[in-house]
Simulated scan of single mutants.
Amino acid sequence: MWQQIIMGIIGLCAGFAIASGAVALVIGLGIIPRYAGVTKTPEHILWYEDCCMLGTILGTLAYLWKGSIPLGVPGLVLYGVFAGIFLGSWIIALGEVVDIFAILTRRIGLTRGLPWVILAMAAGKVLASLLYFAKGWW
């Protein structure tokens, strides 16, 4: 029994360490200040960082907890919409910080059709996500 308790504590600490590293990467890249600049709320940067850490901790705990919250399909749809908005906004903020599209287009010589490339990437992500969840590959 003690071995299981110790392994649980070690696993929880490892999860917190990995999640904190991911948050440190997001903060270290300057995504949060850029996100605050885009939304014109630079006075809330510390609050954004606190929410990022709190979300990481709560997400880790929610992943480990195998219970369910009985909100039904409307709750699932609402969660999906907000999670998609959140993830999309962070992806856009990361793209602006590292300028990956500018570097990619310059290196491959893409001068026309960049909006179509971005649209194709977004459509591919959506279709792959739908296929992933429809097939139950999790």
Rank of each mutant, 00 (worst) to 15 (best):
3 Q>A: 05
3 Q>H: 06
5 I>P: 00
5 I>E: 03
6 I>G: 02
6 I>W: 15
6 I>A: 06
6 I>Y: 10
7 M>C: 14
9 I>E: 00
10 I>D: 03
11 G>W: 07
12 L>T: 07
13 C>N: 04
14 A>R: 09
17 A>L: 12
17 A>I: 13
18 I>W: 04
20 S>F: 10
21 G>E: 05
27 I>T: 01
27 I>K: 00
27 I>F: 01
31 I>A: 05
31 I>V: 07
31 I>S: 02
36 A>I: 13
36 A>K: 07
37 G>P: 15
40 K>Q: 15
43 E>N: 13
43 E>F: 03
45 I>T: 09
47 W>V: 14
48 Y>I: 09
49 E>H: 15
49 E>W: 02
52 C>G: 07
53 M>H: 07
54 L>A: 11
56 T>P: 01
59 G>W: 04
60 T>H: 03
63 Y>C: 12
64 L>P: 14
66 K>G: 11
67 G>K: 02
69 I>H: 01
71 L>C: 03
71 L>R: 05
74 P>R: 01
74 P>A: 02
76 L>V: 01
78 L>V: 04
78 L>F: 01
79 Y>Q: 05
80 G>T: 12
80 G>V: 04
81 V>S: 02
82 F>E: 01
84 G>M: 02
84 G>S: 06
84 G>V: 06
86 F>S: 03
87 L>E: 04
89 S>A: 13
89 S>N: 13
89 S>R: 02
91 I>L: 09
92 I>R: 11
94 L>A: 05
97 V>S: 12
98 V>G: 05
98 V>W: 05
99 D>W: 15
100 I>K: 04
100 I>T: 09
105 T>H: 04
105 T>A: 08
107 R>Y: 12
107 R>N: 13
108 I>C: 12
111 T>P: 07
112 R>N: 14
114 L>N: 14
116 W>A: 05
120 A>D: 06
120 A>S: 09
121 M>H: 03
122 A>Q: 01
125 K>W: 15
126 V>R: 11
127 L>A: 10
128 A>P: 13
128 A>V: 14
129 S>F: 03
132 Y>K: 03
133 F>W: 14
136 G>P: 05
137 W>M: 12
137 W>R: 04
138 W>H: 10
